Computed example of a mutant assay.
Amino acid sequence: MTSSEGRHHHRPMLPGDRAIEASSGSVDPAELAEAADRAATLLVRGAHDSTDVGVADRLLHLADTEGIETIAEVWASSPGDSLAGCLWRLYLLRSWVYADPEGVARQYDAGRARAQVARVVAGVADPPGPEDLKAMIDQVLRGIAESDFADVLFRAAAFARVVAAGRADQPGVSDEQVSRMLALAEQLEAAGHAELSHGLA
Rank of each mutant, 00 (worst) to 15 (best):
M1T: 15
T2L: 13
S3M: 11
S4Y: 03
R7V: 15
H8P: 14
R11G: 14
M13C: 14
M13S: 14
G16V: 10
I20P: 07
A22E: 13
S24G: 04
V27P: 01
V27G: 01
D28H: 05
A30W: 02
L32S: 12
A33D: 11
A36H: 02
D37L: 03
D37Y: 02
R38F: 09
A39G: 09
A39D: 02
T41F: 03
L42W: 06
G46H: 07
A47T: 02
A47W: 00
T51I: 15
V53P: 11
D57G: 15
L59N: 07
L60E: 09
A63E: 07
D64R: 11
D64L: 08
T65S: 12
T65D: 12
T65R: 15
G67P: 10
I68N: 08
E69L: 15
E69W: 13
E69S: 15
E73W: 00
V74S: 04
S78W: 09
S82T: 14
G85L: 09
C86H: 06
C86N: 10
L87K: 05
L87N: 02
R89Y: 00
L90R: 08
Y91T: 06
Y98H: 12
A99R: 13
D100Q: 06
D100S: 12
D100E: 14
P101T: 04
A105N: 01
A105L: 02
D109F: 01
A113C: 12
A113T: 13
A113P: 04
R114P: 00
A115V: 06
V117P: 05
V117T: 14
R119W: 02
R119M: 03
V120F: 06
V120H: 09
V120S: 14
V120K: 13
V121Y: 02
V121Q: 08
V124W: 00
A125Y: 03
D126R: 00
P127V: 01
P128Q: 06
P128Y: 00
P130S: 12
E131C: 03
D132K: 11
L133C: 11
K134N: 07
K134E: 13
K134S: 09
I137K: 02
D138G: 09
I144R: 03
I144N: 03
A145I: 02
S147M: 06
F149K: 10
D151R: 12
L153G: 01
F159G: 12
F159R: 13
F159V: 04
A160P: 05
A160S: 15
V163Q: 10
A165E: 13
A165H: 04
A165S: 09
A165L: 09
A168E: 09
P171L: 06
G172V: 00
G172L: 06
E176S: 07
Q177P: 10
Q177E: 15
V178Q: 07
A185Q: 02
E186T: 05
Q187S: 13
E189M: 13
A191L: 08
L196I: 08
L196E: 09
G199E: 02
G199N: 01
L200T: 00
